[in-house]
Nucleic acid binder design. Structure first.
Lengths: 242, 242
DNA sequence: GCAAAAGTGTTAGTCTTACACCCATGA
DNA sequence: TCATGGGTGTAAGACTAACACTTTTGC
């Protein structure tokens, strides 16, 4: 019940997270199917406690869904158009959803708070998808990793938030060397390359890619990885931040 | 009085603007000396009306200080640490300042609203400094253009907001070709180059700079500018967006 | 030995930087 | 004619992209 004490949160201000993961040569994000409507998909989000920094709030929101701490996380844009929520076609259905869910908790006052105008701070996160054990929250019917190319219609303006997050990711991916947050501790050069190829939707020449990566001086070469395949065993690498 | 009807604004959410101008080979920003304290300097800022988009709010805040419309404007970061206002050493003095200013308007409730926690959306703006006629607002003792290298201690975390704005400016300056917003309609190649040199705090070779600029195909060459100086008259250029 | 994929080397091309030089202008 | 600063050309260097080739591995 404590969770629905909305007094603890800053009103009109929310955080939505675009959580990127990488699996099977696919870039994915975590989206939630809501219990509050029929086929209502949304980004994982939440509110900011009155004495909680926004970065901490985003970390908490992520922790609540992924059970992971110390996730790579960055704010990328504020979405604050005056009509983004109040004129959303989902908003009326959401009011009904809350009422049907539990009319004793969701009084008119609470529902007004929840469906009023919101300014949303967009964060993107990068996680090793293998380390995540998704945690359904109260209104999550299910949480699902979806290929970034196959995102269904999301609530409100969440599709454009995803677009902006992807743009920001591509802008920072190479410059800030954040891609390693999507990979396990150790990986082969081909695995990094495939990640880059997935993110940028283009191919790279393996020799030039390797040269560029090694010239960055952020990779430590480890032992070889014998997979049983009938080819030369690739080296494993570990990312070492300077 | 209408202005102090704080009910019209979203609580706990503010906008602060770093307004860049360029004059005499110096990059400057507009800062405000507040009537509310002794030597209190701050960024021009304001609040967001309940049914006003954040970009519109920022435009309005800029218009109120500069009397300019259609200013180049971009959000660059949210400042939302939980203690940025409530533990600011300026906050106590501000409370006193409001009381002394007008205790009938600034009731305890109003002062609480004003000095409570705020999440601040940082915007930066680029203006032609010649077109600006600064407009003092209620609490502005004066508005002043100050060289970016000589910014005094500002309230709260405003100095770090300036730093972040400068970083964002430098990051976008060349990539988005926004520098022309700081110049008059027509300008010489040398003037653009000096602007770039000021922003990046380094020199460029004039021939290479010119070649790069012209290769961008965004400059229209106009007639020559005869200044009376005993040297070749430089061409004037106009920026034409594609 | 052979196929598959890892890894390395070299060259061609493009972009950036640096140097040298000529040109227009007014005293 | 000279000093001043505008404008252009070219070559060297750095970085990127493309091609060719060798090495390792298990069947």
């Amino acid at each position: 019940m404590n969770e629905f004490n909305l007094d603890q949160y800053l009103p009109h201000l929310s955080i939505d997270c675009v959580i990127f993961g990488y699996e099977g040569k696919e870039l994915k994000i975590l989206i939630s199917k809501s219990k509050l409507g029929d086929n209502f998909w949304a980004l994982p989000g939440g509110y900011i406690k009155k004495s909680e920094g926004i970065d901490k709030a985003a970390s908490r929101i992520l922790y609540e869904r992924t059970a992971l701490k110390n996730i790579y996380l960055e704010q990328f844009r504020v979405f604050g158009h005056e009509t983004r929520i109040v004129e959303s076609p989902y908003n009326e259905a959401l009011r009904l959803g809350y009422l049907q869910y539990d009319a004793t908790i969701f009084t008119e006052e609470v529902i007004s708070w929840l469906t009023d105008r919101f300014v949303c701070i967009g964060y993107y996160a990068l996680v090793d998808i293998q380390k995540v054990t998704t945690q359904n929250r109260e209104f999550d019917e299910l949480l699902e990793w979806r290929n970034i190319q196959q995102i269904p219609n999301l609530m409100h303006d969440h599709n454009s938030i995803v677009e902006e997050a992807l743009t920001a990711l591509r802008l920072n991916f190479d410059a800030k060397l954040i891609g390693f947050n999507l990979l396990p501790e150790v990986f082969t050069m081909r695995e990094i390359q495939e990640l880059y190829e997935t993110v940028y939707e283009r191919n790279f020449a393996n020799n030039n890619f390797q040269k560029k990566m090694l010239d960055l001086k952020v990779l430590e070469r480890l032992e070889k990885k014998f997979t049983g395949a009938q080819n030369k065993a690739p080296y494993l690498y570990r990312f070492v931040k300077k």
